[in-house]
Amino acid sequence: MEQELKIKILIVDDEVELAEILEERLNFRGFYAKSVVDHIQAIREAEKTKYDVALIDVKLKGMNGIELMKLLLEMNPELKVILFTGHGSEGEGKRGLESGAVRYLFKPIDLEKLISEINDILKS
């Protein structure tokens, strides 16, 4: 019941350690966060649970983050996607925005900024 009220966030990053620590931090801050390391797990997770927000690394092994985003949006059009990238290519970020992402952030991510972005997105 408690879980139902929380904002649900799916974290997709092939950097396992990073995905896990983000998950832990967001959970600590009162979100329901779940981390996965590839697109297969991500799709499986999205089938199970209806997430509010997805944090997706642009560079994923196996499938590009933007392609994954498109798949997830097809499954759940209400999903808000934030892309993040360690690559820093503005071009890729812009392409992500055009394809349906609501934000893109550079690594390393400032958690306070991320939380305020999430709140912003869900308010609107």
């Binding site: 950097e15 350690e17 990073l18 620590i21 983000l22 832990e24 931090r25 600590f28 801050r29 560079k59 360690g86 690559h87 820093g88 550079f106 690594k107 390393p108 991510i109 400032d110 958690l111």
Partner: peptide, 28 residues
């Protein structure tokens, strides 16, 4: 430069998040 910064950004993120988590826990 692109390759190096990409490779460095991930560990930096991990350090950042871990430190952040410690800070969060401490504050609580």
């Amino acid at each position: 430069a692109a390759g190096v910064s990409h490779e460095i950004n991930n560990p930096l993120s991990i350090i950042n998040e871990n430190a952040g988590l410690v800070s969060d826990i401490l504050q609580k």
